[in-house]
Amino acid sequence: MTVRAPTADPAPLSGTPPRWRVLSWQLIGLALILAVWWLVTDVLKLYPPYVFPSPRAVWTEVSYGLWGTGPQDGKLLSAIGGSLRRVLTGYGIAVVLGAVVGLLMGAWLPLRATLGAYLTGIQSVPSIAFVPFAILFFGLNERAVLFVVVLEGFIPVALAVSGALLNVPPALRVAGRTLGARGLSLTTGVLLPAALPNVLTGLRTAWSFAWRALVGGELLISGVASIGEQLEVGRATANVALVLATIIIIGIIGGVFDALLRGVEGRVRRDYGLEVPR
């Protein structure tokens, strides 16, 4: 009787299509959206241009704002630079503060039971609700926007770090203590590395919260180059094409940074054996 060695199944796991296939689906979807948009605006003309502009009109605003000449010459590029500076500053502060507070909550039950519950409740409040308080407290300036960004990014990081530490398998805690790790050395040397995949998920969530909070805060802060100001300029001048162009750029920037963080998260998860390479 001969025994055959098992052979690897060349077919990919269900639910994990190759990246090129996912990209092709996304490109096809984008093409369909643009085709329907063009059909509604340029062919069927279901709406007047000042209500729902065509893709060409929106692209004109983008080109004017980024590298062309016209009413918005260079203003959109300057707005993107200013907004990125603010959000990266606020996000960096939020990550540091959130990591420290999350470590403390994960290590100390009374703090987790009190502050953790408060942060969970505050997280349910929309970021735009904090903008009036920030303006009254800090004034109508960039510090008010930075406060909202830090607050919205800090809470997800703190909760993610605390929750990730609590979800570390007990066997790792026992192994760490057996090897002599105690207190801070146990947390930083054993628990935190084991919790890293879940922490990265929290960092990605914090980015989306911070990015949305930034745009909401900038809508009410005038006189500074920002993406929110471009939205307000489009509203004030009834330039729907500029509003749509700015919204699209907001989505692209947010998606690019989310994809970068998702790539780091996926790499770590594969290194930890939590995902199969595609």
Score class of each variant (00 low, 15 high):
G183F: 11
L242K: 00
R204N: 11
R212Y: 12
G234E: 12
G189N: 07
L203Y: 05
F209D: 01
T201C: 10
T201D: 15
G217W: 07
L186V: 08
G228N: 11
R182V: 14
S208F: 06
G183R: 08
A236I: 03
W207C: 00
A194I: 08
L196E: 14
Q230N: 13
L231T: 07
R235Y: 12
S208M: 14
S185P: 03
T201F: 14
I227S: 02
T237E: 14
A241Y: 13
V240S: 12
A241T: 05
G223L: 08
L244N: 08
R212E: 09
V190L: 08
T246K: 01
L196S: 10
N239R: 06
R235H: 08
A238F: 15
S226P: 04
S185Q: 12
R235D: 14
G189V: 05
G202L: 00
P193F: 07
V243P: 00
I247Q: 14
V240C: 04
A238C: 01
A238N: 14
L196M: 15
V243W: 07
W211V: 02
A236Q: 15
L231P: 11
W211I: 02
F209T: 00
A210Q: 10
A210R: 02
S208N: 13
E218C: 04
L214R: 05
S208K: 02
G234S: 03
G228V: 02
A236W: 02
G228F: 04
N198P: 03
E232G: 00
A210P: 09
S222I: 08
G189F: 11
F209M: 05
G189M: 06
L244S: 01
R182K: 12
G234T: 05
G183I: 08
R182D: 15
I221D: 14
G228C: 03
E229H: 11
P197N: 06
A236H: 07
W207G: 00
P193K: 03
